[in-house]
C-alpha cells in the first residue's frame, strides 16, 4: 500500500520531469532560432538549429561521431578505472598510516584544484603525443579527488559504528568490508561523482590538444574548418553523454544509498 503510493508519486514525478525537460528544450531552441533570425552574428558564427542538425546528420552518417564517442568513452573508462582503483588504494593507505595520510591529504588538496589542461604539456613531454599521454592527463585530473574523498569519508565515520562492529567481533578485513566501506559510502559516492566529472573535463581537453580521434578532436576539427555547426553538434554530444552518465549511473547510485540511510527525510 505504502509502496504503491510511493511508486505512484515517483511516476508522477517522472512525468513531470519529462514534461519539464521537453518544455525547457523547446524554449531553448526557440530562443536560439529567434537570436539567429535577429541576425546579430553572421551565420558562420551562430548557425541556426537546423544547420546544426544538418551537421549532426553529416557526422553521424560518415561515422565520425560514433567512432569519436567510442574512442573517447574507451579512454575515459580505462583512465577512470585506473584512477578509481589506484585512488582508493592510496586512500586506504593514507588511513592506515596516519602521518603519511595527513601529509598527502594537504598535498592532494592543492592538486585537486589544479586545472586538467595544465597537465597536457607535461604529459606530452613526459609520455608523448599518444593514447598513454591522454590517459595520464585523465588519471592525474581525477585521482586526487578519489584519494581525498576515500580518506575523508573513512575518517568521518562515526566511531560508534566501528565500536559496535568491533564489539560484535568484526576486525581487519571483515570490519573493513562490512562496516568501513558501507559507512563511508554516502560521502564516498559524492567524491566519485566529482572525480568522474573531472575525468570527463580532462579527456575532452586532452583530446582537443593531443589527439587525432575522439570527441575532443571532432570539436577541434570543427574549429579548424570554421564549421560552427560541427562545433555545436559535438558540444551537444558531450553535454548529453556527461548528463546521461551522471544521471543514469552515479546519481542513481547516490540516491539509492541515500534512500537506504533515510538521508532524504530531511525536513
Amino acid at each position: 500500500m505504502i509502496q504503491n503510493i510511493i511508486s505512484k508519486k515517483n511516476s508522477f514525478a517522472n512525468l513531470d520531469d519529462a514534461a519539464n525537460v521537453v518544455l525547457s528544450l523547446a524554449v531553448f531552441i526557440g530562443v536560439w532560432q529567434l537570436v539567429f533570425m535577429l541576425g546579430i552574428w553572421p551565420k558562420i558564427a551562430l548557425p541556426s538549429p537546423l544547420i546544426v542538425a544538418e551537421s549532426f546528420a553529416k557526422i553521424i552518417l560518415n561515422h565520425t561521431l560514433l567512432q569519436g564517442v567510442g574512442v573517447t568513452l574507451g579512454r575515459l573508462l580505462v583512465g577512470f578505472a585506473i584512477s578509481f582503483t589506484l585512488g582508493m588504494l592510496i586512500g586506504f593507505t593514507m588511513i592506515r598510516f596516519k602521518g603519511f595520510g595527513k601529509t598527502l591529504n594537504s598535498f592532494s588538496a592543492g592538486l585537486l584544484s589544479f586545472p586538467s589542461i595544465a597537465w597536457v604539456p607535461f604529459s606530452i613531454l613526459l609520455i608523448g603525443f599518444n593514447d598513454l599521454g591522454i590517459l595520464f592527463v585523465v588519471i592525474m585530473s581525477s585521482i586526487f579527488s578519489i584519494m581525498i574523498s576515500t580518506y575523508g569519508s573513512i575518517r568521518n565515520i562515526p566511531p560508534i559504528y566501528l565500536d559496535a562492529a568491533r564489539n560484535m567481533g568484526a576486525k581487519g578485513l571483515s570490519l573493513f568490508s562490512h562496516v568501513t566501506i558501507p559507512a563511508a559510502a554516502p560521502s564516498l559516492i559524492v567524491g566519485i561523482r566529482q572525480a568522474w566529472s573531472f575525468a570527463w573535463h580532462a579527456i575532452i581537453g586532452a583530446e582537443i590538444l593531443m589527439s587525432i580521434v575522439g570527441l575532443g578532436h571532432i570539436l577541434s576539427v570543427g574549429r579548424e574548418f570554421l564549421d560552427m555547426g560541427q562545433v555545436i553538434a559535438s558540444m551537444i554530444t558531450i553535454f548529453t553523454i556527461g548528463l546521461l552518465a551522471d544521471r543514469l549511473l552515479l546519481f542513481k547510485l547516490e540516491e539509492k544509498v541515500r534512500r537506504k540511510w533515510g538521508l532524504d527525510y530531511h525536513r
Binding site: 560508534i160 559504528y161 565500536d163 559496535a164 562492529a165 564489539n167 562496516v179 558501507p182 559507512a183 559510502a185 544509498v257 537506504k260 540511510w261 533515510g262
Partner: peptide, 11 residues
C-alpha cells in the same frame, strides 16, 4: 554490548 545510543547500522 547494547550501546546507550543503539548504534544500529543504517545501511
Amino acid at each position: 554490548m547494547v550501546f546507550q545510543e543503539g548504534a544500529l547500522f543504517p545501511w
